[in-house]
Design a protein around this nucleic acid. Structure first.
Lengths: 343, 343
DNA sequence: TGCTGACATGTTAGCGCTAACAATGCATGG
DNA sequence: CCATGCATTGTTAGCGCTAACATGTCAGCA
């Protein structure tokens, strides 16, 4: 018997609670909003009445009068991938902690128009701010002015300058993994890059090249994939044919997976003949054959930080003292796919 | 200069539009809601005014008076996995088509209490219905009565009877893959099952056993994992030590991945010595070494169907004519990890 | 005892919208 | 020429809540 005791059939509203508790609806409102000016005994009676009627405040009415929806929007590109999915998870967890709801819109393509549509849709829903989980391309200002007055924060993509962003320090991760391979004794490291135009690709490429330059190692030709295992496989067949290759740093784990298969088919041993490293640390990476050395991104932390940045902007305004960008340091995870050169 | 022309600083409301168009606010409302009783010319003037002011209806006000939030809730367990993430994607796409917003809450654990909390949170937000993306355990009525009067649909887990559900036909998938292995000439098929208590595990186990029984094949002892690659690896070491094993059907692809690694380490060739099959067809499966024979689940379709079922219940009531459960047929995807027995 | 002020509570207005009803105009047909 | 009816538009009320103000109560103090 948890439903409204009076069985009116209608959902109870604030004045129903007030009547039952013998107070005015405003006092009920005060209890609900934690006003200090309510006597202990009164508060108890009100809470009791709320419980008895299983009363739930009408969020639309509250939003109407306070002009706050308590909702944040998330625009996500391909929620299907491990990274975006984890960030979404982190965002939602953090949002709950800050008492916001999370509404989501996913876009199929990354062009400015689709993203704009998604943001508009969220704006129609009166969200108070928007998080964009989308790898940014380097096109100038792709996110700039997207939200109008609506606060927007980009998550998981490098700071592009146009919008506050939270991202992993791709360059540092690439440097770490490249150095790791050189330290193992490899003369140089090949790179299987992500698609041109993506900030992540560019930063990882830059980190790799910087370490090679600093070490005086030769800088081999870069092969460019599209993040997919398929492209890793296809380019891997090319690498397999080149006897000078002893170490390959792939811009993500999926391409590394494709590469591993290509090398396996070619009868090349990993890490015996060639060492392979990836980037992301997807959950499967430690069960590849052999387990993949990679760079762990804490996607969940990324999401949480992004959310906090956004909440900050909403509640403190854009002049908020905190810095508008954040770089999360990644972590090298050495596993069995890298070793000292054997050929 | 797309903002409100008058630069009042305040967001324009319906009466601002009305004034500019020289009509009453109600006529603006009629235009917005597609009422047929508006003269063409009037409609145009109103639309023009809306555009000029960049007016957006206040969703809270509308929700308050119509008593409809146009929002659906999704409760998701571990959005990080490929399956749930894909379903969420499918749900969102379909929801947009039906003019609903999607609000998400993720739960860390699957106990009834957490799920109840999540649903309560969504109810506080006045969602019109809830989709639960959570593998159901077989505990009786784990979802029953969860929503009270709120429509609830389970997505991706077998029909448990307590709530309308949309799921893949796990048993059919398991039958298909088991038959595939027998047809290749294997005397029997071992099974690496998912955790007990999960409907998915049980259905896959049942399908496997049924085919063995029908074929008069011996039914080997079942090994039970926990869906993780780690458990596949550990149990795989046991299987590797048993020379009678020639074919293994794993209840999901992750465990198959772990198994592949265990076999590889033991120097056992796949599919030369042992054939391996999985279930789910995660995107990486076709790049495992060797490419994994598996059963494809169309998670996106699952999400879409679930959403349609839910919308149906919301708009037509629970007595809606359509059947409350739906089973999506899965598809066997034969790849290189299965072949005729070699030992 | 009466005055002050802090506390506790009640009353009123209005957020922006839609639903219901009212009013207007205009063509039609007897 | 006027009643009839439909198309079009306007007017009013109220959804459930919070903010602002009004009122009531009681302790402390001159």
């Amino acid at each position: 018997m948890t439903a409204e005791t009076a069985a009116t059939g209608r959902k109870p509203v604030m004045s129903d609670v007030a009547r039952l508790a013998g107070v005015s609806h405003q006092t009920v409102s005060r209890v609900l909003n934690g006003s200090p000016h309510v006597k202990e005994a009164t508060r108890d009676r009100v809470l009791q009445a709320i419980h008895e009627l299983d009363y739930r405040p009408n969020s639309a009415a509250r939003a109407l009068v306070t002009n706050r929806s308590q909702t944040l929007g998330v625009v996500s590109f391909d929620t299907t991938l491990y990274g975006p999915a984890s960030m979404l998870h982190g965002i939602e967890q953090a949002a709950r902690g800050h008492d916001y709801f999370v509404s989501i819109v996913s876009v199929r393509t990354l062009d400015a128009h689709s993203i704009q549509q998604a943001v508009d849709r969220l704006r129609d829903q009166a969200v108070e701010g928007v998080l964009v989980i989308a790898p940014q391309n380097s096109a100038p200002g792709s996110l700039a002015g997207l939200g109008g007055d609506l606060p927007v924060v980009a998550v998981g993509s490098g700071p592009s300058g146009s919008v506050p962003a939270v991202a992993v320090d791709n360059e540092a991760g690439a440097r770490a993994v490249t150095r790791h391979l050189l330290d193992l004794g490899h003369r140089t490291v090949h790179h299987l890059a992500g698609p041109a135009g993506w900030l992540d690709s560019q930063a990882r490429l830059a980190g790799w090249r910087a370490v090679l330059d600093e070490s005086g190692a030769a800088v081999p030709e870069v092969l460019t994939g599209d993040w997919s295992a398929r492209s890793g496989y296809e380019l891997g067949l090319r690498l397999a044919a080149d006897p000078s290759v002893t170490a390959v740093f792939c811009a993500n784990d999926h391409m590394a997976l494709g590469l591993l298969r290509a090398l396996n088919e070619a009868g090349i041993s990993v890490p015996g003949d060639i060492s392979v490293a990836g980037f992301d640390d997807i959950p499967e990476a430690s069960y590849f054959t052999p387990p993949l050395t990679t760079v762990r991104q804490d996607f969940g932390a990324l999401g949480r930080r992004g959310l906090e940045l956004l909440v900050d902007r909403i509640e403190a305004g854009p002049e908020s003292a905190r810095q508008p960008h954040a770089l999360i340091p990644p972590e090298l995870v050495p596993r069995g796919s890298t070793a000292a050169p054997g050929r």
